[in-house]
Amino acid sequence: MESNFSMVVETMKPVSLCLVQMGDKGLELVKAHPNVLPKQVLNELTYKSMPMGAKPGEFSSAAVGDLYYSSYVFSLPREDSRDNIAAIIAVYNNMKYNIEGIRKVFSFIVKELDSKKLLKTEVVEEIMPNLYKGFESGHIKIKISSIATIDIDFSEKEEPEQKDITNDLEDDLWK
């Protein structure tokens, strides 16, 4: 089963994708893929990606040094304690990227993972390399369970179209 949409984009390939979440002491970088950014930039991104008072569902774009980024804030459900807050970030070396496209992709992926009860730090971490490859190739296809796949095609000239296909699997593995 596939949940998919297609969209027209300019450039989608980021320099890096980052995942940030709230840790015990404050915001922490969970992962950067590929890990090519200087530590100082990553530190700055970690704090800028979630502005003061940020709430799940918020999307922002700004600059860090010579780089530009777009960040989508979301809630990370947890069973044993209150939900956490996290942000997924796409970093670019110029402003000529499709900001609205990034927002749609991130919000779609978060929504899909959440609907399959797979919205967890380790799952987002795991799919980041595939997501990066997808941005690079223009076609994101991520298998998130044995029968569920997120499919986003950047090449088709249609407005975003979402096919919502429910999936009962909760603890299935992605590949």
Partner: peptide, 27 residues
Amino acid sequence: ANAGKTTIVKYLETGRFVETQPTMGIN
């Protein structure tokens, strides 16, 4: 962190328990 500050504020505002996430700096 996680003492329950925001849930108290939400209770004052709404009169009921509301699930919250960590506060980003200042609300």
